[in-house]
Design a protein around this nucleic acid. Structure first.
Lengths: 165, 165
DNA sequence: ACATTAAGTCAGCTTTGTTGACATTCCAAG
DNA sequence: CTTGGAATGTCAACAAAGCTGACTTAATGT
């Protein structure tokens, strides 16, 4: 491979560079979840509830199975979270009309309120980071993240853009 | 706010853009941990063990307290992980020479072997993502991640570069 | 001497993941 | 039309990995 001069495709990928990327990812993810975690800690919810709420908000009427595939946990695990959210009146579960096995999930008024609170906090940090880094950096950030996803999740991620569920 | 034409500092930060960044971060982190997780699942270890091993490998001779601060967990939680690693002969704990209260942690030969196995897998994905996205994207990726960290962790992250501990 | 720090331990709890067993609903093959 | 299997969701029990609080031991610093 001829990769030694600064062209488009150069490999400046020493193990050290990669290790720094790995650690950056680790530390950044902590920052990424820090604000919602702080809010959630004051109530009886955790990060799993946040994830469920987030994806229900994004795709109102989504089914449990759908959520399962996105979140990548077992249905039993998701069910526990969902049950508390439903009991507490944050999420509504309606039996499907065409297929009565399915449950369609939507946020209630108070569920939407919590969602806003959590995502406002998370977006604020994201916005600050984007501003600090600038538009070009943001584009690169997105490209690398996408390349890092597992293929099936990348497809899901793209599917989100316009169509839902 | 006058943010409608493409200057250097333009705010293209719609809530939708930010939400996509949030989801990209979520999906990418899954990919980021997928390979090591698969390896770890075949043995009696989890992600917590991986993190400990990683940071001991990076700073051989580091103390428990140091690790605690980097990982952001309680000592009880770390201790559980560390104890199994020491019992299994992957990590060595030596009493400090200047301060005998401290324990200095290093990887044994087999600990280093596992570390290599795990980080090879993780680096391979990182390398692939970096290659796919290109050098400029990588620079942006790193900038945004840094901006997203909590200040104290950002300091730690920087401290890593040359100096240790 | 005494307070502080580093490390470790024990007990008990919470969150969030897992498997296994099971009920309900749907659909398609016989 | 029935019936057997697939899909969907629920309940129970367990495991990993976090947490708090209380405590011990040893070494350090004042």
């Amino acid at each position: 491979m001829a990769e030694m001069h600064g062209g488009e495709n150069l490999l400046f990928l020493t193990d050290e560079q990669l290790r720094q990327g790995i650690e950056a990812m680790f530390f950044a993810y902590r920052g990424f979840t820090a604000d919602p975690d702080r809010i959630l800690a004051t109530m009886a919810y955790g990060r799993a509830h946040h994830r469920a709420i987030h994806f229900i908000a994004r795709s109102p009427g989504t089914t449990v199975n759908n959520l399962l595939a996105i979140l990548g946990v077992t249905k039993q695990s998701l069910n526990r979270v969902l049950r508390t959210l439903i009991e507490d009146g944050l999420v509504e579960s309606r039996v499907g009309t065409t297929d009565k096995r399915e449950r369609h999930l939507t946020l209630t008024e108070s569920g939407a309120a919590l969602e806003r609170k959590l995502s406002d906090a998370q977006r604020a940090r994201m916005r600050a980071a984007y501003r600090a880094a600038g538009p070009q950096a943001v584009a690169g950030f997105r490209q690398v993240l996408e390349a890092m996803m597992e293929p099936d999740l990348r497809r899901r991620y793209h599917a989100i853009r316009e169509t839902d569920t």
